[in-house]
């Protein structure tokens, strides 16, 4: 069985290490915050200007002046800090954020990513994604392996306008975990019940299966 969104988030959460400053994008990446492993303490950065993003407020406590980068009402925590957008991207650009998790429409086997524009159809903008992928030390993409038509989103080359070049290190999809190396995608884990044959059939980019590939454990 392919993973659902929560399971993708749960698997990514295992990459978090104690002391990390982490930026979580909109969508599946946001769910990662629900699965932070016990004993691991991380600080969530929201690029609109908040370090130490807390959970959603209790009903009735929403504060319109306190939102995250997805425009959702959030809370602060003891130790939170608030700053302006220039400083926020300054700390991102300076490599202070340890891990960025974001979604993608396409990822190429050389680490290129496209996630901001479908020419002639959808023009929403890149928001902070280009800044994040250009600068973060470690970037994980959370995505569905194929589009609704069943076509691979892990490609030899992105077809959509790029967000960043050669920057993605790891992809966690509904089918497995893939490192991006000079040899292309390397499958290091497969989702429970998913076969290597299925992964091969649904990956258009260069793909290797790691010698020690294993089934994902939760």
């Amino acid at each position: 069985m392919a993973l659902n969104k929560e399971q993708i988030a749960q698997r990514i959460a295992k990459e978090l290490k104690d002391g990390y400053y982490v930026n979580l994008g909109i969508g599946i990446p946001t769910l990662v915050a629900n699965y932070i492993p016990e004993g691991v303490s991380v600080v969530l950065q929201s690029e609109n200007g908040l370090l130490g993003m807390g959970p959603f407020p209790f009903e009735g406590d929403e504060d319109p002046d306190l939102i995250n980068a997805g425009k959702q009402t959030v809370t602060t925590l003891p130790g939170s800090a608030i700053f302006d957008s220039a400083m926020s991207f300054g700390m991102i650009r300076a490599g202070k954020v340890d891990l960025t998790v974001l979604g993608a429409m396409e990822v190429a086997d050389n680490g290129d990513i496209a996630n901001w524009k479908i020419p002639g159809k959808m023009v929403k903008g890149m928001g902070g994604a280009m800044d994040l992928v250009a600068a973060a030390k470690n970037i994980i993409v959370a995505m569905q392996h194929t589009n609704p038509k069943g076509e691979s989103k892990l490609l030899p080359k992105c077809t959509l306008p790029l967000t960043g070049v050669g920057c993605i290190k790891k992809v966690v999809s509904d089918l497995g975990v893939f490192d991006i190396t000079p040899d292309g995608f390397v499958c290091i884990e497969y989702a429970p019940g998913v076969t290597i044959e299925e992964i091969k059939a649904k990956t258009a980019g260069r793909l290797k299966i790691a010698d020690d590939v294993k089934e994902m454990v939760f």
Binding site: E47, D84, S85, S88, K117, G125, M126, A129, D131
Partner: peptide, 10 residues
């Protein structure tokens, strides 16, 4: 003109 958010701020 769509530009990266950090570029806009900077």
């Amino acid at each position: 003109e769509l530009i990266p958010q950090g570029t806009l701020a900077t």
